[in-house]
């Protein structure tokens, strides 16, 4: 199993790091989160029961760690975060308009190229919920981007 974890690490590292950075909101933390997540997976590999894919189990660990990092960041943030309106004026993606769940699904879909079933596996939700959430997130983002253009 250690060899499988290493293979997963070596083949999917950029995607893991990108999703971790996106969810935590901190690029540098993204690297650290993934290193720690794989270390956790090694320590707890006996708890992997083979339900769902190994990659799905890893994604769940990475997403949870990234959520924790984001939460800690929010708690310690003294500067007011840039508002969605300001972000849009600056040409950024107005991701603050999305819920945390929508953001996670968008990141897993776009950055890790996971299909609905794999995202469902990682987030312990149904593939139908993934599809509906992704559609809602796209509509929100499209609406916001069109608002900027007009």
């Amino acid at each position: 199993m250690l060899a499988e974890l290493e293979l997963l690490y070596r083949t999917r590292l950029p995607q893991f790091r990108r999703v971790a950075a996106a969810i935590s909101g901190d690029r540098d933390a993204g690297r650290d989160i993934v290193q720690d997540a794989f270390a956790t997976a090694i320590r707890k590999r006996r708890s992997y029961r083979g339900r769902g894919s190994l990659e799905g189990w890893l994604w769940a660990i990475v997403v949870n760690a990234a959520r924790d990092a984001r939460r800690r960041r929010r708690e310690h943030d003294v500067e007011p975060p840039e508002t969605a309106a300001e972000e849009r004026r600056n040409g950024a993606v107005p991701l603050d308009l999305l819920t945390d769940r929508q953001r996670e699904i968008v990141f897993l879909h776009y950055y890790a190229d996971l299909d609905y079933a794999a995202i469902a596996d990682a987030l312990a939700i149904s593939p139908g919920t993934v599809g509906a959430t992704l559609t809602a997130a796209r509509q929100t983002l499209r609406g916001a981007l069109e608002e900027v253009r007009t």
């Binding site: 290493e6 690490y9 070596r10 590292l13 950029p14 790091r17 990108r18 950075a21 996106a22 690029r27 993204g30 690297r31 290193q35 720690d36 794989f38 270390a39 956790t40 090694i42 320590r43 950024a92 993606v93 991701l95 990141f107 950055y111």
Partner: peptide, 18 residues
Amino acid sequence: HVRPFDDPADWADVLRRA
């Protein structure tokens, strides 16, 4: 929004942390 990462992998660091 989040540019791709191209830093090298460091499996030895993962093992150290584990």
